[in-house]
């Protein structure tokens, strides 16, 4: 019996008076792709950020590959080497080329020499279809290209788990496809991904499980067929039908 790759156990988080996560628990196995959906402000970003400890939880435990990573004595930098993150606003390093963005972590964190890092960097840009843009700066790239660089940057660290926080919601509609396609490829390669996204096409085709988060609680958690076709909770159904109307025509 092997440990789940990621497990959240009764995680609580509040900001001042506001309870943002209220007893969140779930597990995912290596190779799973879990998609988190839920209304704005329901705590989706906070939950992701707790996993790589950009945000500290108040109580509960988070385990990565069997190790509790929320202990006070956990080295957060060691944890983050194993957990990649892709941001809604890309957050590319503006002063570095696409290749520079991908290799910075390899050099400064993994301690690779320049030549090896460049080689690795190219491979990962290739993986997201951007090896021809290696020398472009972020400001010279389209939104879709920026996000693919963001994905390559996270992939390059060879993480056990990739976190995506609404990776396509800052993109013009016509640029969403290229990013989703890259994410599908990664899912097919067996990379473990925890994805906050309302891209229903991706969720239906690539997700192992869908997690519906509302007001800091997991309301429903199950495979896409079940959750989309036959939601158990009334809240889930309501949310999904609202989602359909707002996304209609896109």
């Amino acid at each position: 019996m092997s440990d789940p790759l990621l497990a959240l156990d009764d995680v609580y988080k509040s900001y001042g008076e506001e309870q943002v996560l209220s007893g969140v628990s779930f597990e995912m196995d290596a190779g799973d792709v879990d998609v988190v959906i839920g209304p704005s402000g329901s705590g989706k970003s906070t939950m992701l950020r707790c996993v790589n400890r950009l945000t500290e939880i108040d109580s509960g435990d988070i385990y990565l590959d069997g190790d509790c990573v929320t202990d006070a004595d956990t080295d957060v930098n060691e944890l983050r080497k194993q957990v990649g993150m892709v941001f809604q606003d890309f957050n590319l390093f503006a002063h570095l080329t696409a290749l520079g963005n991908v290799t910075l972590g390899l050099r400064k964190v993994r301690g690779m020499d320049k030549a090896t890092a460049r080689e690795r960097g190219y491979e990962h840009l290739e993986q997201v279809g951007l090896s021809d843009q290696a020398d472009s700066y972020p400001a010279e790239l389209s939104g879709g290209q920026k996000q693919r660089v963001g994905i390559a940057r996270a992939l390059a660290m060879d993480p056990k788990l990739l976190l995506f926080d609404e990776p396509t919601s800052a993109l013009d509609p016509e640029l969403v496809g290229e990013v989703v396609e890259v994410m599908r490829d990664l899912a097919a390669e067996g990379i473990t991904m925890l994805v906050v996204s309302h891209e229903m096409g991706f969720a239906r085709s690539a997700a192992s499980d869908i997690i519906f988060l509302d007001e800091g609680r997991i309301v429903e958690h199950g495979p896409p067929e079940q959750l989309f076709e036959n939601p158990q909770a009334a809240r889930t159904g309501e949310f999904l039908s609202r989602l359909e109307t707002t996304h209609e025509g896109e």
Binding site: L54, N91, G105, K108, A154
Partner: peptide, 17 residues
């Protein structure tokens, strides 16, 4: 912008680095 610093921390760089 803060996001870049956060992205650097997220790949495992220390704050000073």
């Amino acid at each position: 912008d803060e996001g870049q610093l956060e992205a650097a921390r997220a790949v495992g760089m220390g704050r000073f680095q």
